[in-house]
Design a protein around this nucleic acid. Structure first.
Lengths: 140, 140
DNA sequence: TCTTGACCTTCCAGTGACTGGAAGCCCCAT
DNA sequence: ATGGGGCTTCCAGTCACTGGAAGGTCAAGA
């Protein structure tokens, strides 16, 4: 299989596949012409990587997952620990974004959005006391 | 004010402040010795930037916000539109993370996490049908 | 006066995970 | 032989910093 076909099948850009080889995630064979020659096992690894990446695992986490996947004597507790740690990171990121969202929603909600220059959003950014005041008014 | 003091007051690393000058977000004066000399207005801008960044606005969005902040004849609708677009992005990101979270939670929940190699997490990553099956089992 | 140490400067390189593009083979069909 | 698509490598850019080296400046103490 040449790179274009494996890219289509794995659902990854060819560029990304070359990059994954460069950083040692896969090691496709090479034909006499220098072209990469992908086996089914390469395709499977790439699809695995694509799914792990789409779940937000970092490249290094993907490398560890792939190593566990290939290790027949792995303990599922190791996989679960890795995934659990990642879940914690996702949860933390969600909380962080929700805090941003809440603050910003209050500012946007307080802004008239008309032709006048007065703007609680800019006031909130310029002065955290103002921002707090809005919150206080809202929740009081 | 020298950079260290303004950094402490604005709550930003000195490195970041130099970077913000480099990309034209601020233009502090210079003393005869070549040191940056920050006015109160620079400090205010830096604090503004720090808050906007902490709400997830990109540097270019911050640049636009700062321009609106300085433009006395702005329309608050412009600010509200910018903030609203950013809120949409935040909401989209949260949804994306929640989808990852849901999928990963199902996989982690199905994994025994013991000394045996059998692992639904790896199976789910290796084979989306397996992943779907888990979901189906769960929701059926 | 000299020295020490904290502070300041610039410049260069690296992060993560790609992505775009240029220059140049290779292969197949016409 | 020519054209077009596919393949190769390498370099540069993204975003928002961050670390570190090399060197100038300043104020306080011996």
């Amino acid at each position: 299989m040449n790179i274009k076909e494996v890219a289509a099948r794995a659902g990854l850009p060819a560029k990304t596949i070359r990059y994954y080889e460069e950083i040692g995630l896969i090691r496709p064979l090479r034909g006499a012409n220098g072209y990469r020659s992908f086996r089914d096992s390469d395709l499977h690894k790439l699809a695995f990587l694509g799914r792990a990446r789409s779940l937000g695992f970092s490249i290094e986490e993907c490398r560890a997952l792939l190593a566990l996947y290939e290790d027949q004597s792995r303990a599922s507790s190791d996989v679960k620990a890795l995934a659990g740690k990642h879940l914690d990171q996702i949860a933390a990121k969600i909380r962080e974004l929700q805090e941003m969202q809440a603050t910003l929603q209050q500012l946007v909600g307080a802004c008239a959005g008309d032709q006048r220059p007065d703007c609680p959003i800019l006031q909130g950014l310029a002065d955290p006391a103002g921002l707090t005041r809005i919150k206080t008014d809202c929740c009081a």
